[in-house]
Amino acid sequence: MPKMNLVEAINATLFQEMELNDKIVVMGEDVGVDGGVFRVTEGLIKKFGEQRVIDTPLAESGIIGAAIGMAIYGLKPVTEIQFEGFIFPAYEQIVSHIARIRTRSHGSYKCPIVLRSPYGGGVRALEHHSEAPETLYAHVPGLTVVIPSSPYDAKGLLSNALQAEDPVIFFEPKRIYRAFKEEVPEERYTIPFGQAKIVQEGHDVTIITYGAMVRVSMEAAELLKEKNISCEIVDLRTVSPIDTETIISSVRKTGRCVVVHEAPRNLGIGAEISARINEKALLDLKAPVKRVTAYDVVTPLPKLEDFHFPNAEKIINAVNYVMGF
């Protein structure tokens, strides 16, 4: 089985799905000849031609809006927006059209676009290049929001997105684009949305996280193991829909929960998870749900970035807090 990093796994999935479905077109800024600024679409144009791998003008609303028309017509557009901080010109098309075409037409039209974008911080980038805006999309009815944490999951989740009938926002944590490799099967497989993964089992505390923070949480759990604290790590994989069932059954078992994400805290995914635990497992809790998140500030430039994002030590402190409550 080949070992791949996240970029390679996504690239391989695009190749595989485009071969199987000639309705798939990839479009965005620099996705063709250049292969994307992170090289995620490398080689596609050579294989599938410029009719299906399209270098577009520099216009995000144009890319997404035109993709809507393509989807309505019967194509399956995969749009790349170069960085998560640049999606906003297209936000109207996403919120006012993509998310609600099915509802507005009573199911007679669907809009199965896959919107890919590098996401999150930790790469010492410019302003607008290190954002974690998932709440802005998870909050929109009609959208599915996927944030993979590993090459294996990325392939299964992207493959599922490329076969889905509904629009999918697919955020790729750029911090782990090339951070590690793992075995990724060559054959096609899918991972369904709304199904969290128990990354490791444990009995003292549940750490709920997703994306690049899964690795950071694993690092914390490893150190906590030395202190005889056993962490169960739940990787949400999709932040909309959220797999409530897995969360609740884990929290019922451990009685303690820490949520970790690199998005700001206020109204973040952690708030929603905490609310669901309150509603469904309040009496199982031995401590309040604790959140380890980025702060409610504009993502700082590299000099302050490390203060801003969660790290293993902050997670350990939160776990110690809920253990000692």
């Binding site: 077109v25 299906r52 028309g69 393509m70 109207e92």
Partner: peptide, 19 residues
């Protein structure tokens, strides 16, 4: 939402052209 549909029409026409 004003003018948003102009892009949809371009995308659909583009799809027709591709196909």
């Amino acid at each position: 939402p004003i003018a948003t549909q102009t892009l949809h029409a371009v995308g659909a026409a583009w799809a027709a052209k591709i196909l």
